[in-house]
């Protein structure tokens, strides 16, 4: 792609989009957002990056292989469900932690961990597909 504007803007755009995607992920419990949407936004950031900077640059930027990221995400999501077993609840019952210094936080929980897993799966899987398509030329 030979758009000078896009090429120049890409590094800023991508950084911001990734940041935004994490913001969307974390706010999801109370306002529109969540792991799935956040993941899609994150994936679109990497898609932009791949189109403008090439596959090798994306691979460097992601550090880990995208499929591994997706796999780790799935693992985290599964693990967050196991936690409840330790407390005697059924598999995937949400567990909450209300720290004494912030009793009204209502945020630290296995549910959020699960959402992070979803985010990683979506980012990893979609980026893997995009990179695969780019490379197959």
């Amino acid at each position: 792609m030979n758009s000078l504007i896009l090429k120049t803007a890409t590094p800023f755009l991508v950084g911001l989009t990734v940041l935004f995607s994490i913001y969307v992920l974390l706010r999801g419990h109370n306002v529109p957002g969540g792991g799935f949407i956040g993941g899609l936004i994150g994936a679109s950031a990497f898609a932009t990056y791949t189109i403008n900077e090439g596959v090798a640059a994306t691979r460097r930027a992601m550090v880990f292989h995208p499929v591994s990221i997706a796999g780790v995400g799935l693992f985290i999501a599964g693990l967050s469900g196991v936690a409840s077993l330790l407390f005697g609840d059924a598999f995937m019952t949400g567990q909450w932690w209300f720290p004494s210094f912030a009793p009204d936080l209502k945020y630290l929980s296995t549910v959020v961990l699960f959402d992070i897993g979803v985010y990683l799966v979506v980012v990893g899987a979609i980026v893997a597909i995009i990179i695969g398509l780019e490379e197959s030329t």
Partner: peptide
């Protein structure tokens, strides 16, 4: 403890479904 019903369904009430989907 979530006000976003859609997301709460996805990650809590129906987390097992979501797990299957991901």
């Amino acid at each position: 403890y979530g006000r976003n019903i859609v997301n709460v369904i996805l990650v809590d009430f129906r987390a097992l479904d979501t797990f299957g989907e991901i």
